[in-house]
């Protein structure tokens, strides 16, 4: 009986987290297209609903009612598993995101490692989809994407080490509360920039959208997908983008902390501040998509391995020696 009540309570909490995430993914697609359009002096989707807000809903309906085509020469089980894996991994990571001092689904000790592990598993959805399609373009796209995500994971890992040096804990709530006096974006600003660019590469966003570069690879690993399976890839991708924005907000922008600890700001709950920070980062993501041309593949690899990795490693040494010299190392 006790177990059943625990299960119900947890399911209720999970639904309360996941439904807003899914709805905001739909909204964020609309926002992305609108920002993209405004930069190019277009209107963007503005017909369905007020300001075109229901555009994503209409798109989703269209995807649901379309036929799912499974290529006859594909590996059917893995072909169907791939979008499921992408979507699931994009959603389970939200379990550890803290929306307030106590508003977190799973307050685990190694929260940041969990986030990092889940985001590094995200590559499997793409590889599985690309391989199981048994076709040239998806395979090339999958290989490109796997190499790209593994490379940029390395620099994201080193950047996380930088932040952890200043915090002294792997718990996400501890990371947020350590920024009470100053957000890490100020002392670690170069790391924030590198994190942002690596997050773009990690989520296959322009200018690093080589896995689905439409001029060369049709649609990359998604070429053979249609209907709801395509929509799941697409939802998973945007959920991952939101997750990366949330990670950036927690690591560098103070998570659910308000920017100033004075009267009118403290009235607003922490969840709102976190959402505002996520939206700010997402706005930057959308702007970058609109104004930067696509990278060449060798330039992308060079940027990851020869520029970001050495720079962030040197910054780890600098941060560690600064903290050690001024006796600021967090000891507990």
């Amino acid at each position: 009986m006790e177990y059943i009540s625990i299960v119900f309570e947890e399911v209720y909490k999970i639904l309360f987290l996941l439904v807003p995430v899914l709805v905001s993914v739909a909204m964020i697609v609309w926002l992305d297209r609108r920002i993209w359009a405004f930069v190019q002096k277009r209107q963007g989707p503005n017909v369905v609903g007020p300001f075109g807000l229901l555009q994503s809903l209409a798109d989703a309906l269209k995807y649901i009612f379309k036929e799912m085509i499974i290529p006859s020469s594909s590996n059917k089980l893995i072909f169907i598993l791939a979008p499921i894996v992408t979507m699931t991994l994009a959603l389970i990571a939200w379990a550890v995101i803290p929306f307030g001092a106590t508003q977190v689904l799973a307050d685990i000790n190694v929260g940041i490692l969990y986030l990092f592990a889940v985001s590094s598993l995200g590559v499997y959805g793409i590889i599985m989809g690309g391989w199981a399609s048994n076709s040239k373009y998806p395979f090339l796209g999958a290989i490109r994407s796997a190499a790209q995500m593994v490379s940029y994971e390395v620099s994201i890992g080193v950047i996380i080490i930088n932040v952890l040096l200043c915090v002294g804990s792997l718990n996400l709530n501890d990371i947020v509360t350590a920024q009470q006096s100053m957000w890490f974006v100020i002392p670690l600003f170069p790391m924030f920039v590198i994190f942002f660019i690596s997050a773009l590469a990690e989520t296959n966003r322009p200018p690093f959208d080589l896995p689905e570069a439409e001029a060369e690879l049709v649609a990359g690993y998604q070429t053979e997908y249609s209907g709801m399976m395509y929509a799941m890839f697409w939802l998973g991708e945007y959920a991952n983008i939101l997750l990366m924005c949330a990670m950036g907000a927690i690591l560098f922008l103070g998570g659910w902390l308000s920017p100033l600890e004075v009267f009118p700001f403290t009235l607003i709950p922490g969840a709102i501040w976190l959402i505002l920070k996520i939206l700010l980062l997402f706005f930057l993501f959308a702007l970058v998509k609109a104004i930067v041309p696509r990278y060449r593949y060798d330039q992308l690899m060079r940027l990851g391995w020869k520029v970001f990795l050495p720079f962030s490693l040197i910054w780890v040494v600098l941060t560690a020696s600064y903290l050690f010299y001024f006796n600021l190392l967090p000891v507990n």
Binding site: N109, L113, S120, L170
Partner: peptide
């Protein structure tokens, strides 16, 4: 928990990807 997560990151996230490759 630390070993478990590192296992996920290193083996599943990097080594197995190279195997698959």
């Amino acid at each position: 928990e630390f070993l478990g997560m590192i296992m996920l990151i290193v083996y599943v996230g990097a080594v197995a990807v190279l195997f698959l490759f």
